[in-house]
Design a protein around this nucleic acid. Structure first.
Lengths: 329, 329
DNA sequence: GGGCCGGATGGTATCGTTACCGTCCGGCCC
DNA sequence: GGGCCGGACGGTAACGATACCATCCGGCCC
């Protein structure tokens, strides 16, 4: 920076200001400085800036998996909402493992983010403590934790599935199965399964048609395998709700391979409104949790909190949308 | 850190060492320090550490899109290979836009990564200059650029597609179309399309059955729409290669909706070996570029270069694998 | 014309950690 | 017993930017 200042004929202080957004540097001086910097190949050192200013301009985000269209949408909405304020995202993924999440949170907090967004409401005790003491806004998403750490932008996975159960029951279907949600690791999956069981019981129906699908992320293949086991063991099943559209699609393909008519003999529904559910034949009924909205509203919340609007924590509940398509008609 | 030192009864210097990996601190002292830190809720400040030590222990990575199983696999392989050496990944995505990539690269370099991995070999001039002058290892992946900036771990998209064309020709199919690759933004897509054209011409076949699919990322829906246009305008087409498995699957669904038998009347192939291609009915022929290997070999290369093994640049070519399934048999 | 104001710029200390260099001390060798 | 060695720990300066305060000067008001 001193070199740039020398070449541009100004003080380092002015160079520093030229790299800021709204500092008072005349336009002529600024462009001269930026040109000198470009010529010299100078690259602004964010670590020094961060240390001195005690601001890093990034928001830490943890998601269970990189390769998931839903979480990618949330990150995208978040990123979009933050970029006007110059906030960048520091992303980490946990592989659906809360111990991995704990390690990740520790690493992320060391880098002094302005805020931290975590997916889900279940954490190790130590992770919880770290988040509570971090001294920055904490937002839990994709869930409605009973005891939030800070802010929440989420929805009830259980209530969302209840809507789908009601849809099936209204169509006169009673022998309904659920695929997935058996792994303790995926709390949203287990919540969906718990919602299924509660909804079935409240209708006075048998809630024991539960097919395990393995550890998350639940693949299409695992959905297909689960459907295979379901057809083998409980062939009179009339409808299936899968923990995600991906496993629902896998289940659908298994039906196709076995010549089981969907929805004629069996109705299928998924969760997440992934693109595949809208385009496959027949298209899948699903529940759209509006992942991009979750990101966008999280971004808005972060901006509001960082601007200092009060210190109370907010719980923002987004409404999942029941989307009925041919696979359950 | 001074507070922790006081509580633990040692000097700040010793606390600093206790947080390192292989510093000479007695085990008793170290655990006392870590306990004191935990009690005080002390969080190590990575920004200060980075500044003083001039090491950040992270590798910057740019990918076109978060929500893409292939790139996610590469990042995962990379991450896995780097974590033993304590290197973390700082990930950014470009939305398939080289100007966005330029901005991203600038932001990433400001954070002083130990190395930078970019997806693809086409960049803006300024991005190229920044990478050349960054003074850290640069690795271009998923491509074999004619003029590499530094190291390369990639493959020839064009050559990979040629293998698929050869497969079709060997089966006696001659009226072959290509879906996608028309957008300038996705260089890998355009390379695949160019490879298709070259391969067709070398067989003396008509290489003009090219169907546009829109701007990347090419969705399943766009694959379906493209297939619709293809069936409308060139109904005698015998085989289709799509720019990715996702668009290939979309194309397949369009055939299903129209009652076009695959592979009876039309063969379909994709690219990328996504899970959907393996499980859909019929399963899709595809080309597997081994994305996780790309990540793993990139990680190994980075470790080797950072360890100081010579200064020459290496070009590592991975071999895509032709995977023939029922959709083209 | 003197005083005042605000935009543009400069100087200095400092953010929290670690590189570098010392110190201390117990053990071992000749 | 003196010398040497190495493990464990401490003191100080410095990484490269910016917060904070000071300065300078042209323009405007009364």
């Amino acid at each position: 920076m001193a070199d740039v200042a020398r070449v541009a004929g100004v003080s380092p202080m002015t160079v520093s200001r030229a790299f800021k957004r709204d500092a008072s540097v005349s336009e002529a001086t600024r462009s001269a400085i930026l040109r000198a910097a470009e010529d010299l190949g100078y690259v602004f050192d964010a670590t020094a800036s961060n240390l001195r200013s005690q601001r890093t301009d990034f928001v830490a985000v943890t998601i269970p998996s990189l390769n998931n269209a839903n979480f990618a949408e949330t990150v995208s909405g978040l990123s979009e909402g933050l970029k006007d304020r110059g906030l960048q995202i520091l992303l980490g993924y946990t592989n659906y493992d809360i111990h991995e999440e704990e390690r990740l949170i520790e690493q992320l907090l060391r880098r002094r983010p302005e805020a931290i967004v975590v997916t889900g409401g279940r954490h190790t005790d130590r992770a919880r403590r770290m988040l509570e003491n971090a001294g920055i806004p904490v937002i839990e998403t994709w869930d409605l934790p009973p005891h939030p750490i800070g802010h929440v932008v989420g929805f009830s996975n259980a209530a969302a599935v209840r809507g789908m159960v009601d849809h099936f029951v209204a169509r006169g279907l009673t022998r309904i199965a659920f695929i997935g949600g058996d792994a303790d690791r995926d709390t949203r999956g287990t919540d969906r399964r718990a919602g299924f069981i509660a909804a079935m019981q409240s209708h006075g129906l048998d809630a024991t048609r539960l097919i395990a699908a393995g550890i998350p992320p639940i693949s299409m293949r695992e959905g297909a395998d689960a459907m295979g086991r379901l057809l083998d063991t409980l062939p009179d099943t009339q409808a299936v709700i899968a923990v995600s559209d991906l496993s629902a699609f896998g289940a659908l393909t298994e039906c196709q391979r076995r010549g089981v008519d969907v929805p004629g003999r069996l109705s299928i529904a998924g969760f997440g409104d992934y693109e595949i559910g809208a385009i496959c034949v027949p298209p899948l009924s699903t529940i759209n949790p509006h992942p991009r909205d979750i990101g966008a509203r999280t971004a808005a919340l972060i901006l509001q909190v960082l601007a200092g609007d009060g210190t109370q924590t907010s719980v923002i509940e987004v409404q999942p949308e029941l989307t009925i398509r041919q696979s359950s008609l």
